[in-house]
């Protein structure tokens, strides 16, 4: 099998097997990419993950791009990424077209009213988990609360918050270095 096609198929497999993305994907990537294909070592995979977490975009796509690029350059990275998103496209399109036909049925609407409560609880749990890993000092505490309140009460694009907080981070770290 040509390697470009192999990259596409392997990442499509990873895409089918993961729910939710992010860390849920690590064991499956390890099995497919490290054990089965030998495309990367576990250390490299963890490096890719670390970079994926602190660069913009979807972590799964970032990892696929890294591994594709390592083996076949730019075409490789594109094939791996397309493989990663292909199952999502197909599955969501099927569900979306079916659901839009049933959306007006009262029972379906009640079911979704219940599901929205669940989404709310799941997000709450995710926030608690993130809070524990992110809020470690005065800056992070103030930043979380300020961004939360400002974006609820003011109509400001998230982009502005992201850019401003990056500047804050650089200023704070630079000041810390100077004071030492």
């Amino acid at each position: 099998m040509p390697i470009l096609f192999d990259l596409f198929v392997t990442f499509a497999k990873v895409g089918v097997c993961t729910f939710g993305g992010g860390y849920a994907m690590l064991p499956i990537l390890e099995r497919e990419v490290v054990s089965n294909k030998g495309w990367a070592t576990m250390d490299e995979l963890l490096d890719y993950y670390a970079v994926g977490q602190c660069t913009p975009g979807i972590i799964a796509v970032n990892t696929a791009t890294f591994i594709g690029n390592k083996h076949k350059g730019i075409p490789g990275s594109i094939c791996a990424t397309l493989g990663m998103i292909f199952p999502s496209l197909v599955i969501i399109l099927i569900i979306a077209s079916v659901l839009s036909n049933f959306a007006d049925i009262p029972a379906v609407q009640s079911a979704f009213a219940g599901i929205r409560v669940c989404v709310c609880v799941l997000i709450f749990n995710a926030i608690i988990k993130l809070w524990k890993s992110v809020v470690k000092d005065m800056y992070s505490l103030i930043c979380v609360l300020a961004v939360f309140l400002l974006s609820i009460f003011l109509d400001i694009s998230p982009v502005i918050f992201v850019l401003l907080s990056a500047v804050c981070g650089i200023l704070i770290k630079t000041a810390e270095v100077r004071s030492k």
């Binding site: 992110v134 992201v162 704070i172």
Partner: peptide
């Protein structure tokens, strides 16, 4: 700088 901002959003 960005990580707590993402959490706030």
């Amino acid at each position: 700088g960005i990580r707590p901002c993402s959490l706030g959003l």
